[in-house]
Amino acid sequence: MNPPPDSELIDACLAGSVEAWEMLVRKYKRLVFSIPRKWRLSHEDAMEVFQSVWLDCFRELHSLRNIDRLQPWLIRIAVRKSHRLSQESRSLLAARLGTPPEDAVLDNTHRELIRRVELEQLVRTAMSQLTPRCQEVIRALFFEDPLPSYAALAERLGLSGNSIGFTRDRCLERLGTILEDLGYES
């Protein structure tokens, strides 16, 4: 059930696989888009950051082949671009447009945001390793607002009212175990 590791996907991209590129984009699309959002950029600016990060990524693919380098790289580039945009819109100094990119000077608030981004991606990875049924249960428990009733959830999953409780417990335990295996730290 585990998707191929990034290094394999990148190799496949470089060998000409469109599908591998699409898998990479889909794997990290929420991570990349969440960063300009956390920097409180407008929807339009968030879209710009998203496009620009993936364009850089596509261009730099060959240098990102090393295992485990892609995610931190995507975060770094998205943070840099988001930070710059948020400063530009704050200062309205158009002259800043003329200065070359440099890594953002981050304070503790920003570092906390980045930690959040990493945690959220860890959860996505863990989710992707659950069965489809468990994924649906977890999404309902955590992502839906308002929370569906257990009766409604049981009906959606085609379960009896009795077994939904059992399924829920099992899925929560499973998710916890996967998160621990992936190195979750509080």
């Binding site: 469109v18 991570l31 992502f143």
Partner: peptide
Amino acid sequence: MREGGSDEHRNEPPDDLVKQVVRLGASKM
């Protein structure tokens, strides 16, 4: 997960945007 979870749908980029980025890799890369 409780704190960030209900926000997750807003981390989803518009589908058109994703398709555009996927097209960067079109034509067998």
